[in-house]
Amino acid sequence: MSAEAGTGAGRHIALPEIDSTNAEGFRRAPALDGPTWIVAGLQTAGRGRRARPWVSPRGNFHGTLVLKPSGPPEQVALRSFAAALALRDALVQLTGLPASFALKWPNDVLCNGGKLAGILLESQGLGGPDPVLCIGIGVNLIAAPDPALVEPGAVPPVSLLQETGLRITPEGFLVALAPAYARWEARFTAGGFAPLRAEWLAHAARLGEVIRARTGAETREGRFESIDASGNLILRTPQATLAIPAAEVFF
């Protein structure tokens, strides 16, 4: 069973349970004619970056925005920054606590320094006649994974309820998130990445500080200087200034 409604920023399909909202997004994409949010009460096979399991208990937000964007893959991928900015906007709107939320490169949202939300972009057919982009978003609204299960050095997970005392339903969160994303999508379409980059940097966690970036078996330590016009992490090490397109970042 599913329910369909409007969010004010695209269609909204609500499902009681699904394997993965991203997987469902790809299954439904051929029949969709506009931006569509797919939200599930429970995910049985949710996943994060590098195919890691994403714990998806009821009461947390598990959703995917399905888009059919034109443009080259590297440009389409910059929508991860639009999603991060929309998440922060929605959280600030709902809590009134702007100082609590920061953005961690490449695709996490922090609350009081802990990992509150993650973003997973997956795509098919970009640059072709039938492109599909699924922007998967998970937010720990009421529960977070056990910190003991997180690898050493990683940012510990937190929940919005734990950090702020506020209990927000997934449906209430989508009411704020969907129009927030629509605003950033419009800015990206009209003005390119520059306005998103500037706003993202204004809320970046640990900007100007020493961090570690792990790519495969190699870990580099340096000062987090910026992100460039392609969304790459700019890391200044004692040997060189590097532009890193993908990495795991540790504080």
Rank of each mutant, 00 (worst) to 15 (best):
M1N: 08
A3L: 07
G6Q: 07
T7R: 06
G8N: 11
A9P: 05
I13Q: 04
P16M: 11
E17A: 13
I18G: 01
I18E: 01
I18M: 05
E24T: 07
F26S: 10
P35W: 03
W37F: 15
W37N: 06
L42S: 04
T44H: 10
A45S: 14
A51W: 14
V55Y: 04
S56Y: 01
G59T: 09
G59F: 01
G59S: 12
F61E: 06
H62P: 00
L65V: 11
P69M: 15
S70M: 07
S70H: 06
E74C: 03
Q75I: 14
V76W: 05
V76I: 08
L78E: 10
L78F: 13
A84S: 15
L85N: 03
L87C: 12
R88Y: 11
A90C: 08
V92K: 11
Q93R: 15
L94H: 09
L94A: 09
G96L: 10
P98R: 05
A102E: 14
K104W: 04
P106R: 02
N112Y: 07
G113Q: 13
G113S: 14
K115E: 09
G118M: 12
Q124D: 00
L126T: 12
D130Q: 13
V132A: 07
I135C: 06
G138A: 14
I142A: 15
A144H: 11
A144M: 08
A144E: 05
P145N: 08
A148L: 09
A148K: 07
L149W: 10
V150P: 09
E151P: 12
G153Q: 07
A154L: 05
V158C: 12
S159K: 06
S159D: 08
L161T: 06
Q162P: 00
E163S: 15
G165V: 10
L166Y: 06
I168V: 10
T169S: 15
T169C: 07
E171A: 12
G172M: 04
V175G: 07
A176C: 11
A178Y: 04
P179D: 09
A180L: 08
A180H: 05
A180Y: 03
Y181A: 12
W184N: 01
W184G: 00
W184K: 00
E185R: 07
F188K: 01
F188L: 05
F188W: 09
T189A: 11
A190E: 12
F193H: 03
F193I: 02
A194L: 03
P195A: 10
L196F: 02
R197F: 00
E199N: 02
W200I: 00
W200L: 01
L201A: 06
G208N: 14
G208E: 14
E209Y: 03
V210Y: 09
V210C: 10
G216V: 13
G216P: 08
T219H: 07
T219E: 14
G222A: 12
D228T: 09
A229D: 15
G231D: 04
I234L: 13
A240Q: 15
P245V: 06
A246H: 08
V249G: 03
V249I: 14
F251H: 04
F251S: 10
F251K: 04
